[in-house]
């Protein structure tokens, strides 16, 4: 039975969504004007579109370089996070009755509540001592720091998978590793999607870790570049906003195409 559409609510929600979209609309309007047009009107469509702001900003901030840094960090972080964190979680989930693994579970999960600032200063020292103040070091830290939350999510999911499937595989002579890669890992796909999406959002948008770990401007990530160029943008808001938009665009494009998938993935992670 189809119920009547609540038009009043629909209108209210559309009005609300304007609040969400307004800052982005404004950002686009600033990015495609020149200072003169901006002074005349902030929100109106420009009579002439200044797309050269984008090419100028690209050149100035070395956009493609920062883009590829962010992309490399995100891709590698996600791949390794999925492969390693799920494995650790599997071992823990299947041995929760043992003291050691129970300890591990709480050890990792409770670390979620250690505030980052306390680690901030020593980790800078440590990464420097190891020569890891670079992209590799950053990827590595994301993978390790992801353990806390991901183990929490994975363990919950793995424990809901019936053991019979594994037992059958074991009867066929599969090793523990074999069981994990051939039986369990494929079953984890829904939750892998969740972990993957959350990891992408984190690694792509993070500002604090790159800020303190990376000192070489050539390996700066997209958000870091926006910060680093604050001084040089000066009051050239058009250029600055063109640059901001370009930094936001890649993930927005991904979102446009995978929107349903992203939302359901994020939801599962939180309510599983």
């Amino acid at each position: 039975m189809k119920k009547k559409t609540n038009w009043l609510l629909t209108l209210l929600l559309i009005a609300g969504s304007v609040l969400v979209l307004f800052p982005l609309y404004m950002a686009v309007m600033i990015a495609v004007k020149d200072p003169q047009q901006l002074a005349e009107s902030l929100l109106a469509l420009p009579d002439k579109w200044h797309f050269e702001n984008f090419t100028n900003a690209m050149e100035m901030t070395n956009f493609w370089n920062a883009f590829s840094n962010s992309a490399v960090i995100t891709v590698f972080t996600v791949i390794f996070t999925l492969l390693t964190n799920s494995l650790v979680a599997y071992a823990i989930a299947r041995n929760m009755h043992k003291k050691f693994y129970k300890f591990l579970y709480y050890y990792f999960v409770s670390a979620m509540f250690i505030p980052f600032p306390i680690i901030m200063l020593p980790i800078v020292k440590e990464m420097t001592a190891l020569g890891l103040t670079n992209l590799y070091g950053l990827i590595f830290l994301y993978i390790v720091y992801g353990l806390s939350f991901n183990i929490f999510v994975y363990v919950g999911y793995i424990r809901s998978i019936p053991k019979e499937l594994e037992e059958a595989a074991i009867m066929d002579g599969a090793s523990t590793w074999g069981v994990f890669w051939k039986v369990i890992f494929p079953l984890l796909m829904p939750i892998n999607a969740t972990v993957g999406i959350l990891t992408v959002l984190w690694a792509w948008n993070d500002f604090m870790l790159p800020l303190i770990i990376l000192s070489d401007q050539d390996i700066a990530t997209l958000p870091l570049v926006q910060y680093v160029f604050q001084g040089q943008f000066s009051t050239d808001y058009n250029l600055a906003f063109a640059s901001y938009l370009m930094a936001l665009t890649p993930i927005v494009i991904v979102y446009l195409f995978a929107q349903k998938w992203v939302i359901s993935g994020v939801t599962k992670g939180a309510i599983k």
């Binding site: 800078v124 103040t133 680093v228």
Partner: peptide, 16 residues
Amino acid sequence: PPDAGTVMKTRLTKND
């Protein structure tokens, strides 16, 4: 970088 004084101190901590 902006806030270069702070960045310089970070670099000093890193011995970089």
